Simulated scan of single mutants.
Amino acid sequence: MRFWVTGPLKFVWDIAFYPNCRNYWWRDVLFLDNFYFGDPVCVGQAWYLGTDMQLYLVAPLIILPLYFSKKFGKAWLFLLTAASAIIPAAIIYQYDLPPTSLSNPLVT
């Protein structure tokens, strides 16, 4: 990338992006950059590729039980749905988080 960037904003690549890409390129290649929130990144918009790949790898664990056994698959789906509601509620209760992220100091 550093050989393709030209023009008046080339110094931005040299100063801001190139050092991060030199040190943290492996996060983008292994699709793990969405786990390093707040750390320096090489390609910031690539977090979505990591998230998409991880969901692609986890999807068979949800879909295959539904395909092979309707009864077990429905129970498994109910358990995952309940866990996806209970776990965030427990975290919100434990840390006394506000009801919206707009008042969260990490966001503002």
Score class of each variant (00 low, 15 high):
residue 97 L to C: 14
residue 81 T to S: 09
residue 23 N to P: 00
residue 96 D to F: 13
residue 4 W to N: 14
residue 102 L to W: 13
residue 32 L to S: 11
residue 78 F to N: 09
residue 34 N to C: 02
residue 61 L to Y: 04
residue 22 R to W: 04
residue 29 V to A: 12
residue 5 V to D: 13
residue 45 Q to D: 02
residue 40 P to V: 01
residue 96 D to H: 15
residue 9 L to R: 06
residue 57 L to E: 06
residue 73 G to D: 04
residue 69 S to L: 03
residue 105 P to S: 14
residue 77 L to Y: 10
residue 100 T to D: 15
residue 75 A to T: 04
residue 12 V to C: 08
residue 4 W to R: 12
residue 71 K to L: 05
residue 85 A to Y: 11
residue 62 I to G: 03
residue 14 D to A: 01
residue 52 D to N: 03
residue 33 D to M: 03
residue 101 S to G: 14
residue 95 Y to E: 15
residue 1 M to T: 13
residue 37 F to N: 05
residue 3 F to I: 05
residue 79 L to Q: 06
residue 50 G to A: 06
residue 84 S to H: 12
residue 18 Y to E: 08
residue 76 W to R: 06
residue 11 F to W: 12
residue 46 A to M: 01
residue 19 P to Q: 03
residue 10 K to M: 13
residue 98 P to H: 13
residue 32 L to D: 08
residue 5 V to F: 07
residue 14 D to F: 01
residue 74 K to E: 10
residue 65 P to Y: 04
residue 7 G to A: 11
residue 64 L to E: 03
residue 38 G to T: 05
residue 55 L to I: 05
residue 103 S to C: 12
residue 98 P to I: 14
residue 94 Q to E: 14
residue 76 W to D: 09
residue 108 T to P: 04
residue 76 W to C: 06
residue 24 Y to N: 04
residue 66 L to C: 08
residue 23 N to V: 00
residue 31 F to Q: 10
residue 28 D to E: 08
residue 79 L to F: 10
residue 86 I to G: 14
residue 41 V to I: 01
residue 44 G to D: 06
residue 68 F to Y: 01
residue 40 P to G: 08
residue 13 W to Q: 03
residue 18 Y to G: 07
residue 103 S to L: 12
residue 88 P to T: 10
residue 79 L to K: 01
